[in-house]
């Protein structure tokens, strides 16, 4: 069906058509068919015409709209920035009020060197002094045989006196030299 005729059927009945419009219509269909279509289309457009969604639906849906983070348009953001710079320029202190402070920072590197210190180890040696004892001599008493072995220093008791010279007392000289 011609779109122009279709538009006519949706607007007016055959009786209201102009002579020219009637000619177009009659070239396509009969007047009865036209009126039939007009009636159907007019009635169809009015079907459920008074239907409306319930009022509570609107309120329910409005709750679902979450206020997102506000997005400023670019021009607003630029204006705010310009305003901020302007305010900063106005509030800026004069040069005399600016105190220049120079701070020098020296950075010193510290190098740590590991030093391994061993503990002093003292080694004791046992000095064995051999003493020849005539084992065959039955007169030697047991006390002499099992007596502890004495070093020569121990055997000769040092009996220094005040004012004695080291040259005069060789034991004393030996004591000092050995002790060193």
């Amino acid at each position: 069906m011609n779109e122009r005729i279709e538009n006519l059927t949706r607007s007016k009945p055959f009786s209201e058509l102009s002579f020219e419009e009637r000619e177009w219509v009659l070239a396509e269909m009969s007047a009865e068919t036209y009126d039939q279509m007009h009636k159907v289309l007019m009635s169809a457009a009015n079907l459920h015409a008074d239907t409306q969604p319930p009022a509570y639906l609107r309120a329910r849906l409005m709750k679902q709209v979450r206020p997102a983070t506000r997005h400023f348009p670019v021009w607003q953001a630029a204006a705010m920035l310009a305003l901020g710079f302007g305010m900063a320029w106005l509030v800026k202190p004069s040069v005399a009020q600016i105190a220049v402070k120079t701070e020098v920072q020296t950075q010193i590197d510290t190098v740590w060197r590991e030093k391994i210190v061993f503990e002093e180890k003292i080694k004791y040696r046992t000095k064995i002094v051999y003493q020849t004892i005539a084992a065959a001599n039955p007169n030697v008493p047991d006390s002499v045989i099992w007596a502890p072995i004495k070093t020569p220093l121990e055997t000769a008791p040092i009996n220094p006196h005040v004012g004695a010279s080291l040259n005069d007392t060789p034991q004393l000289m030996e004591f000092f030299t050995k002790a060193k």
Binding site: T51, P53, V65, H71
Partner: peptide, 19 residues
């Protein structure tokens, strides 16, 4: 952008037709 008033305007325009 989460504008409730804009949604309300859209709803008022189309809800009856869509329903």
């Amino acid at each position: 952008n989460g504008n409730e008033r804009a949604f309300a305007a859209l709803y008022d325009r189309y809800s009856v037709r869509i329903h």
